[in-house]
């Protein structure tokens, strides 16, 4: 399997706030990397930085071998076709003054795809692909339901024939039943078109459902990364463990038996993160040595690592 995207040492710093700090990960063609974490962990900023919608302070983003951070404007604009994004608030991501046909058509126009007579037919084809009825072509965003708006956004992203789509909380604002429709759509599209996804979400249940690999972020850093089955079955980092234990399961019997690891306190101020391991102020197993320095990644199995010094104690 070939690496489509390789992120290496990615930093996004706003003054003292290290929103994203030294991220490294990769995504294979046709696969999904889930990026989970709570609000303020920098997962959305990571998505934006990959697409160069915010400029990274340091690091490399290699797409098909080309470093997006170092491309000139024109080359980057051409490459944007290959990397697309959909947002949490689908309605806000659609210009309220344009009808659906123009919203999708514009994506074609920007890259000179299907010009002239072929344009209208292609738009119809694309709407069909995401399961939208053709008559919606004349509708404006405010006339669409949440699910329909997200389908239009997906449709627009697909219009430029991308290889990777960053999905930034794409179903978080939707009702459960509609959420399932969109999740299924994204999975179908991946199968049919061989898309790779970076699936950003705070919802660990949806991420489990969507992803092949999962990276867990806390205060700008990835604390653990592993294949899906592995990370949900054998989470290693204390943060991942507490996160997973906190997610409710829709089964009263299981819920009654579950042991929650309740974390102390709140997220620290991102402008003044704790020294050493950033999680140590809330960590149930923190020791003095955790304050000493940034913990290095501990390899635990093939493709599984976690940044916690207590994992090497042979417990």
């Amino acid at each position: 399997m070939s690496r489509l995207l390789e992120v290496d040492g990615l930093d996004v710093h706003y003054g003292a706030v290290k929103a994203v700090d030294g991220l490294s990960f990769g995504v294979d063609r046709g696969r999904t990397l889930g990026l989970v974490g709570e609000s303020g962990c920098g997962k959305s900023t990571t998505g934006y930085a990959i697409l160069q919608l915010v400029r990274p302070s340091a690091g490399r983003v290699l797409f098909d071998g080309a470093d997006l951070c170092r491309l000139d404007t024109a080359s980057l604009r051409r490459l944007r076709r290959k990397l697309q994004i959909i947002f949490q608030d689908a309605h806000a991501s659609l210009n309220p003054r344009l009808p659906v046909g123009d919203l999708v058509g514009e994506a074609l126009d920007i890259h000179g795809l299907f010009p002239g007579a072929a344009r209208a037919g292609r738009i119809r084809e694309l709407l069909d692909l995401v399961g939208l009825a053709g008559h919606l072509i004349e509708r404006y965003p405010h006339e669409l339901s949440g699910g329909q708006a997200q389908r239009v956004a997906i449709c627009r992203a697909l219009a430029v024939e991308p290889e990777l789509i960053v999905c930034d909380e794409p179903v978080s604002a939707l009702d459960v039943s509609i959420q399932a429709q969109i999740v299924n759509l994204l999975q179908d599209l991946q199968q049919r078109l061989g898309l790779a996804y970076i699936f950003i979400s705070h919802d660990l249940s949806v991420v489990r459902h969507m992803s092949d690999e999962v990276a867990v972020m806390y205060l700008g850093k990835i604390v653990e990364l592993a294949g899906k089955e592995r990370i949900y079955a054998a989470p290693a980092h204390p943060y991942t463990r507490s996160l997973l234990s906190a997610v409710p399961v829709p089964d009263p019997d299981l819920e009654a038996k579950r042991q929650r690891i309740i974390l102390k306190g709140d997220l620290p101020d991102p402008a003044h993160p704790p020294s050493g391991c950033r999680f140590r102020t809330r960590c149930p197993i923190a020791i003095e040595r955790c304050a000493a320095g940034d913990p290095p990644p501990q390899p635990l199995a093939a493709g599984h690592w976690a940044k916690c010094i207590r994992l090497s104690e042979g417990s």
Binding site: L53, N95, A153
Partner: peptide, 26 residues
């Protein structure tokens, strides 16, 4: 700062297009 402007940038729209077809309209 609206999300649809970010979406247009992500699509690779040039500044002139963004300004004329997205910002000016709004």
């Amino acid at each position: 700062e609206d999300v649809y402007v970010t979406a247009a940038r992500a699509l690779g729209a040039r500044p002139t297009r963004i300004v004329l077809s997205h910002i000016l309209r709004n």
